[in-house]
């Protein structure tokens, strides 16, 4: 079935089975490999993408569910000015180690700061609670989000 949606601000049509996972469409059909698969069951958040600006697990999303919608992956996010603030903060605070959870973490952070530019620590934790990281112990990630929020403030 031909399925139309928007990926990283570009219209795209893919001819796939409607039950195909959005993750597989992104990685295998569109060859955008920044989105990762860590568990395949919605437990780790490594496959997080934005669908109409809301973070989704792309491993649980049948492609039928994004017909006509706007999907943003890390390849799209990284073109934004907000990404630079977030990536710079992650670099300064040690928010990324092996890098496998990182695109998902950055998208979750991006979505959080879009809707809530100055989150409390509790709000940061809730927003990132579905994104597992095995390397950083999360402290570097929390500090990264805190710093990105502060930096964003200066840019307001």
């Amino acid at each position: 079935m031909k399925i139309n949606f928007v990926i990283n601000k570009h219209n795209v049509t893919v001819d796939v089975d409607p039950s195909m996972r959005l993750l597989d469409v992104i990685r295998n059909e569109l060859h955008l490999t920044g989105t990762k698969e860590g568990c395949g069951e919605g437990s780790c958040g490594a496959c997080t993408v934005l669908v109409d600006n809301i973070p989704y697990d792309s491993c649980l999303t049948p492609i039928a569910n994004v017909i006509g919608k706007e999907v943003m992956t890390i390849e799209g996010i990284r073109e934004s000015k907000e990404y630079n603030v977030i990536a710079d903060a992650f670099a300064k605070m040690g928010g990324s180690q092996c890098g496998f959870c990182t695109p998902g973490m950055i998208i979750a952070t991006y979505a959080l700061l879009q809707s809530n530019p100055h989150p409390t620590d509790e709000e940061i934790k809730v927003a990132l609670s579905g994104n597992l990281c095995r390397c950083t112990g999360y402290q570097g990630i929390i500090n990264s989000v805190r710093l990105a929020s502060q930096k964003g403030e200066k840019n307001d």
């Binding site: 195909m20 996972r21 597989d24 698969e37 395949g40 069951e41 919605g42 649980l60 049948p62 569910n65």
Partner: peptide, 20 residues
């Protein structure tokens, strides 16, 4: 019937890269 897919896409998942 699939709405969000969060239950069925797990139950029917086969393997990475394959259709449910």
């Amino acid at each position: 019937i699939i709405a969000g897919g969060t239950d069925l896409m797990v139950q029917k998942h086969r393997s990475s890269g394959l259709l449910p």
